[in-house]
Simulated scan of single mutants.
Amino acid sequence: MLGQGLAHYACDPAHTRGRRHAEAPAPTRTDYQRDRDRIVHSSAFRRLVYKTQVFLNHEGDLFRTRLTHSLEVAQLGRSIARSLCINEDLVEAISLAHDLGHTPFGHAGQDALNGCMQAHGGFEHNLQSLRVVDQLEERYPDYDGINLSFETREGVLKHCSQANALRLEAAEPGGVGGRFLRKEQPSLEAQLCNLADEIAYNAHDIDDGVRSGLITLAQLAEVELFDRYRRVAEAEHPHLVGAAMERRLLYETIRRMLSAQVYDVIDATRAALADAAPRSVADVRRAPALVGFSAPMRAQSSELKRFLFKNLYRHPQVVETTGRAQRVVTGLFAAYVSEPGEMKPRFTRQAMEGEPSVRARAVADFIAGMTDRFAAREHERLTGLRLLG
């Protein structure tokens, strides 16, 4: 074991690969704790409160936002990390930063912006999250970004195409893009955040979907992972049966489902670690992915995802709303490319620097940083059309 009760294969802040800009250590915090604090105090993090998941910002006050989702991922991640003796602070930092690059209007906004950017390298929210922490935040006098440690930045970059990895490696040799070229895994902490992200959004999309009335407990009976724990909850608490107690039954079922998934990840990952026997973070990188579900839980989680895609994400009401949201994003992109002076001065200056791809990237950066309601207001200001509430 290393310091703070960490296993040998955990990321130890005393042996971080460092920051892009060298800094003296803090007297009272580790590097990963400093990363977490910088993320929490960033402008991009505050904007997550008005960026949404499935339901848009004007559709209700109790639906999840990117901020509440990130907090839920951090909570799940820290709980599992503690049991695995890997670094909780690093897991928390990655969890809180992983959605900083998301556009307004959830995946609908990302898809629309990616379409607008096809001639200019595309748009991908994981890469944009890295761009936010490396370049777009303006908080320090001598450099752009918030100068996070390598390990946090590595976890933020969950996916990366070959072309983007080559560009990152050219700009930062030996940096966070290299593992995609070498076909290596990230740290256990980063692997855990990826899975905690999936566990969190599956659970809260059930909650939000039922709250919205777009899916029902009766429909969820076809999903084994959910229905098993609903039946157990009803057997142990018969008074929960009936429409008046549906909300409590839903919460109890989700709570039990989440617990089962957490314990499954802990057990399956411990077994994988025992088989691989990594002695260092370098061993983890060379091994297959080690953090994961057991095979039965993976199958059940996949069934739940398919259910949500069919019954919630592709629900006609959701599709209609997200279609209007995509029109907002594409309309904003066209307006700003045509008239970059309509953006905030920083982005206007960047847009005027040169070739069309530079202008397009400046526009994408500006749009990606918007909240749902600011994007809707800007679109109405520029076009005269009110597409969202």
Rank of each mutant, 00 (worst) to 15 (best):
E353C: 08
K310M: 07
T330C: 13
P278C: 14
E353D: 04
G121W: 01
S302P: 06
D31T: 09
E339C: 05
A325I: 01
G354E: 10
V210L: 04
V319E: 13
L304T: 07
N114H: 14
N147W: 00
P141W: 02
S301Y: 05
P104F: 01
Y143T: 10
V223D: 12
I199T: 07
M117K: 07
L214H: 10
V337K: 03
D35W: 00
D31S: 11
A196L: 03
H204R: 04
D267F: 05
V358P: 01
A360L: 04
A233K: 11
G384F: 02
N202W: 13
S83N: 12
T371N: 04
L84H: 06
A335Q: 14
E88R: 05
R34S: 09
A376V: 01
C116P: 09
L157P: 00
S70H: 07
M117R: 04
A235I: 08
R20D: 13
C193K: 05
L214C: 06
L388V: 01
E124Y: 12
L168C: 09
G384K: 06
L382G: 12
D142I: 05
A351M: 02
S43Q: 11
L84G: 06
Y313F: 13
R131P: 05
G242E: 07
G145D: 01
A97L: 06
A235W: 09
I94Y: 03
A170Q: 14
